[in-house]
Design a protein around this nucleic acid. Structure first.
Length: 223
DNA sequence: GCGACAG
DNA sequence: ATCTTGTCGC
């Protein structure tokens, strides 16, 4: 899967302008069509944040068996700025995606989609550049408000921001802390929430992000 | 003006 | 994000 990203911003000002420019092409009203391969993406940082390892795992949508995986270790060039996470993590993720043999149909990212200050989180950015469905699953709150979902697995509450439903706070396992799901591109909030739940078969986080997390740490350690 | 702030 | 094993609790 090839993604080109030229004129990558180097300053926060340029990065924000880029997000506002690309936010217009986000589509979160198209239902997710049947698909075969689902990708999980995550990154790990060196203790001094000088290097980053991006990892992507591709699973069979039905069996969740691992079909392919790829990593990319590189120097970190963009600082961590809340709301601009994509500019820090995407170079490594895009490079890893380019090393895959199996082309994924849906991208499940570690972070947010439209539940973002400018409606353009990491999942939106990757989805738009790839031209594929993408969604985000985050572990902690960012923007928006939501009621506390029930303690049963599968219970969820709308995540509202700026008067709009931008995702959901979803309980993936009984009595565990809920996760924050938001659509990124070519998927609806409800479809993203359903998929997140289906992927969280045994743990709080979806298998996609769990596997990508482990892979990224291994890549960083062995590089 | 004072906090909060994905990873 | 990252430093970190076993351990207490549901």
């Amino acid at each position: 899967m090839l993604i080109t990203h030229e004129k990558w911003p180097r300053t926060a000002q340029d990065a924000e302008a880029e997000q506002e420019r690309l936010a217009g092409s986000v589509d979160v009203s198209t239902p997710l069509a049947p698909f075969r391969y689902i990708a999980g993406l995550d990154v790990a940082y060196a203790i001094d944040s000088s290097r980053v390892a991006g990892a992507v795992v591709v699973l069979d949508a039905d069996t969740l068996a691992v079909e392919d995986m790829a990593t990319a270790v590189m120097d970190v060039e963009f600082p961590y700025v809340s709301g601009l996470l994509a500019f820090r993590e995407m170079p490594a993720l895009i490079t890893a995606l380019g090393r895959l043999s199996v082309d994924p149909d849906v991208l499940v990212c570690d972070g947010y989609g439209i539940a973002h200050p400018r409606r353009f989180g990491l999942a939106c950015h990757l989805g738009v550049l790839a031209g594929k469905p993408a969604m985000g699953v985050a572990k902690t709150a960012f923007v928006g408000q939501a009621a506390e979902p029930g303690i049963q697995r599968g219970e969820a509450a709308d995540l509202v921001h700026g008067g709009e439903v931008v995702g959901a706070v979803l309980r993936t396992q009984l009595s565990t802390k809920p996760v924050f799901v938001s659509p990124g591109h070519l998927i609806t909030a409800s479809d993203a929430t359903r998929l997140a739940l289906r992927l969280a078969t045994k743990y709080r986080l979806p298998e996609t992000t769990r596997l990508a997390d482990q892979l990224s740490r291994r890549a960083l350690a062995g590089a």
